[in-house]
C-alpha cells in the first residue's frame, strides 16, 4: 500500500507479547508516513506507542504484518541488517536525551557515523556542521553534564540527523524541558522539518502534537483515528509563536482509520 514517497509503511502490523497470557501491544495497525511529513503519535500509556516506535525504529520486529522503513522490510532482515538500517535511516531523539556521558557534544553527534565506518575528519566536519545548525557550535567541546536540558536535546537532535536519515523518531522530546526551552526545541524540529526531514513525534501533550501535520491517535494497540491538521500558512511552515496559545487548527471531527495511507496533499520539500 505504501508508495515510493513513503518513508515508513506499516501493513496490518501486530505485536504480541507473552507475559502469562498474550498481550496485543499492536493489533492490526496500518499506516503510511510520507517522506518529509510531520506526524505526531498520541495515546494513553499502554496504547502501543512505544511498541510502534520500536518497530519504526527497527529496534524490534512485528509478530505479523509488515513494517517497511526507508524501503527495507525489516521483518525480512537479519539482526545485523536491521542495525544497519537503524543506523542509516533512523534518527532517535529521546525524552531523557540519552547522550553518551563521557563524550563531548561533538563526539556525541559524530557517534552514529562511527558505526557507519566514516573516518574521523569526515565525521567531525559533519558533526560540527550540524552543531552549528542547532546553534551549539560554541558548545562542541562540552560534556553533556555541562549543558542545559535544551542544549542536550539539541545535541541529540543533531546526532539524530547526522546520518541524514529517512525518518527522525522523537519520543517525548520535550518531556523533560521547561516551557520556554520546549518551544525552542520544537522550533528547531520544525526548521529541520521544513528542510525536508521526516518527523515522527510521540507525545502525550496536545500542543506538541499540534505542531504536526497530522496526529495518529492510538488506543489499545489500534489506530483510533487520524487527525489531519491544516497548515496555517499553507507552505508547511507553521507559526512558531505556538505554545499552548496556538490556534487549534485541528480538524476535530473524528476520522477513522480507513483514511490511513491516504496520500497527503503536501509534497516533501527542501529536497
Amino acid at each position: 500500500m505504501g508508495t515510493s514517497a513513503d518513508a515508513v509503511t506499516l501493513t496490518d502490523v501486530r505485536k504480541t507479547y507473552h507475559v502469562g497470557e498474550p498481550v496485543h501491544a499492536l493489533d492490526g495497525v496500518s499506516l503510511s508516513i510520507e517522506q518529509g511529513s510531520h506526524t505526531a503519535i498520541m495515546g494513553p500509556s499502554g496504547s502501543g506507542k512505544s511498541t510502534l516506535m520500536n518497530l519504526v525504529g527497527c529496534l524490534d520486529t512485528p509478530t505479523s504484518g509488515e513494517v517497511s522503513v526507508g524501503g527495507n522490510r525489516i521483518a525480512e532482515l537479519t539482526d545485523r541488517e536491521r542495525t544497519d538500517v537503524r543506523g542509516r535511516d533512523v534518527g532517535f531523539v529521546f525524552q531523557t536525551f540519552n547522550l553518551m556521558p563521557r563524550l563531548t557534544a561533538l563526539e556525541n553527534v559524530a557517534l552514529p557515523q562511527l558505526f557507519q565506518g566514516a573516518d574521523r575528519e569526515e565525521r567531525y566536519d559533519r558533526a560540527r556542521d550540524l552543531l552549528e545548525r542547532v546553534g551549539l557550535a560554541d558548545r562542541a567541546a562540552h560534556l553533556p553534564r555541562e549543558l542545559s536540558g535544551g542544549q542536550r536535546q539539541r545535541v541529540a537532535l543533531a546526532r539524530a540527523l547526522v546520518n541524514d536519515p529517512a525518518i527522525v523518531l522523537a519520543d517525548e522530546p520535550t518531556g523533560n524541558l521547561d516551557t520556554d526551552t520546549e518551544a525552542e526545541v520544537l522550533d528547531l524540529f520544525e526548521t529541520f522539518h521544513d528542510a525536508g526531514t521526516t518527523l515522527i513525534v510521540v507525545t502525550h501533550e496536545r500542543h506538541v502534537a499540534e505542531r504536526a501535520e497530522r496526529i495518529v491517535h492510538l488506543l489499545d494497540g489500534e489506530i483510533e483515528w487520524i487527525e489531519e491538521l491544516d497548515d496555517v500558512d499553507g507552505d508547511g511552515h507553521r507559526d512558531a509563536d505556538g505554545g499552548d496559545g496556538e490556534e487549534a487548527t485541528a480538524a476535530l471531527e473524528g476520522e477513522s482509520d480507513e483514511q490511513v495511507g491516504e496520500p497527503d496533499d503536501r509534497q516533501p520539500e527542501g529536497r
Binding site: 539482526d79 542495525t83 537503524r86 532517535f92 552514529p112 546526532r159
Partner: peptide, 16 residues
Amino acid sequence: TREIGIMKAVGAQNRD
C-alpha cells in the same frame, strides 16, 4: 547498559 542501548540505537552492531 544504557550507553550500550544508545550505541545500538544509533547503529552499533553487536560486534562493535
